[in-house]
Design a protein around this nucleic acid. Sequence first.
DNA 1: CTGAAAGCGCTTACAG
DNA 2: CTGAAAGCGCTTACAG
Lengths: 341, 341
Amino acid sequence: MKANPTAHDVARLAGVSQSAVSRAFTAGASVAPATRERILAAARELGYRPNAIARTLITRRSRIVGLVMSYLENQFYPLVIERLSQALQRNGYHVLLFICETAEADAVLADILQYQVDGIVMASTTLSSGLAQDCAEAGIPVVLFNRVAQLGTLGGFATSSVTSQNREGGRLVGEMLVRTGHRRVAWLAGLENASTSLDREAGLRDALAEAGMGLHARAVGRYDFAVAREAVLALFRDPADRPDALFAANDHMAIAALETLRSELGLSVPQDVSVVGFDNVPQAAWPSFALTTVQQDVDRMVEATRDLLFEQIHGEVMARSVTVPCALVERGTVQTRKRER
Amino acid sequence: MKANPTAHDVARLAGVSQSAVSRAFTAGASVAPATRERILAAARELGYRPNAIARTLITRRSRIVGLVMSYLENQFYPLVIERLSQALQRNGYHVLLFICETAEADAVLADILQYQVDGIVMASTTLSSGLAQDCAEAGIPVVLFNRVAQLGTLGGFATSSVTSQNREGGRLVGEMLVRTGHRRVAWLAGLENASTSLDREAGLRDALAEAGMGLHARAVGRYDFAVAREAVLALFRDPADRPDALFAANDHMAIAALETLRSELGLSVPQDVSVVGFDNVPQAAWPSFALTTVQQDVDRMVEATRDLLFEQIHGEVMARSVTVPCALVERGTVQTRKRER
DNA sequence: CTGAAAGCGCTTACAG
DNA sequence: CTGAAAGCGCTTACAG
């Protein structure tokens, strides 16, 4: 038994041409049923498996999509990996995974392109205008996941993206906070130039403005646990000027805030401060946190990503941005405040 | 500018043969420095990138390793993905990711093999003896991560594996629990046939036996949050016969236990029960949990996996099992008990 | 150091 | 329905 039998070996055993073997393994090719049976039997006997690499070379379709991510500690992203790779697998595609900092993204992308991926999805990273252009010229669709191209940043090359309706989500939280009587709302930003953080903040500000309010305070947590902790410490340094609500750009930072508030500042949530997050990661539902948050609909986002990818792979070349509704999930970290008057 | 320039296009522009272009892009090939420069300049001008697929076809080396996982909710695995893919990237390898249930692993593996991966690492899944045989015959190294082949299960085909010293880890916990005066130790198992769960339990039992004790109770949490919750409810149903310590096969279940104990059973940890986990995931350090646990040294495990993979890819074909030390991390969920006498 | 040629394992017109 | 042939984009002996 040969180590790696090829279509030729199978052909010889089945007494047909190598082309026939190829046809037996391609759906919809014209082979007589009896011939196909004979070929498949021979293939089974030899342990033959078509070589996907050779097929890729000739069809120019690898059925591989590159997935670029930067950090997995925020539980939202493992979820995305899981769902996205399953959705792609169901459609006969595979994911080549790259973990890298945004700074390394360009080098990594160059690498990906060598592997002739059919598409690229970038989550928790963005690409430079140069690479966007390269991809566009190479005809490789790129979809940004949970982020949107900065205006002008991609050098005019339209790039698809899938996001939640982040501004609406931020507004939902703002309205709820106003409705429940909060007067000193603080915002814990993610990355200063991340569209998710920017849009959620804009929505929050919209809602506050409609109630004649502004942001009481603001700090930057960089979507990082330790940085968020520092930011919270700074925000609550002055006991006389304490926020009565803290809205964090994602759950990961909201949980960091919860921990810091309780265990380091001795404050009670929601009695002393209300806390709200964004994402609805699994931990948000744990009783220790019972975090009020905005749910991102991962399944719909993943579906949209897959659809966008496929419609571009299969020729309709226009880039599109899709936006998925999100919903407020009220749990236990927000308390109605009496209006001081 | 051509969409996807090939080595021929570059050759034409640089006025050399296609072979020379190939040499300019392979480290250590013999090209005159001046020629190489001219070729690289031409390549840059055309935006040429060598086609990794074509290279793979001829070198029979894809520089891709398949990573098979089943679930990512347990934060330990995202960590593994992150570290492993980075370690591999640093060595010029890439990871093709597959998420699947153990039941589907065979079909998925067949798929992976078509892509001519250079190696496979299986974390949170195992493979059947049939596939193990296929991989052995195809000369594709497989390393099991955080699990060990069941005796006899792989049909005599030796498979490499990387695990912590799970039995020692279990023993460490058992000894500590005995030393701190616990008399009614319960074990929350993961999967009944998982080597990790089995070994950790065996270590625990060793330590208890040396103190003349046995397990007070035992339940199965299947490494799942919801199942672990049910198991804890069952374990603590009878107030008169309550465990004074609960050792869970991993942190994910230990946290589920903590949440259930506190919020559903109204018990205090560690005052009413001590709780210990295994892994030392990031959340274990969060103040809300301050979980005492056994640390798995992910970095050393990842290193060992990479080394095992590479030594087998590069010809030394013996499968080996490597075992990495683990250490007790004492935080706040274990309390010293007075001996009732 | 360099080029011409063979070939990796397939798919796919093109004839028959 | 089937086979012979060309070719996908490279690497790598083999000569020179």
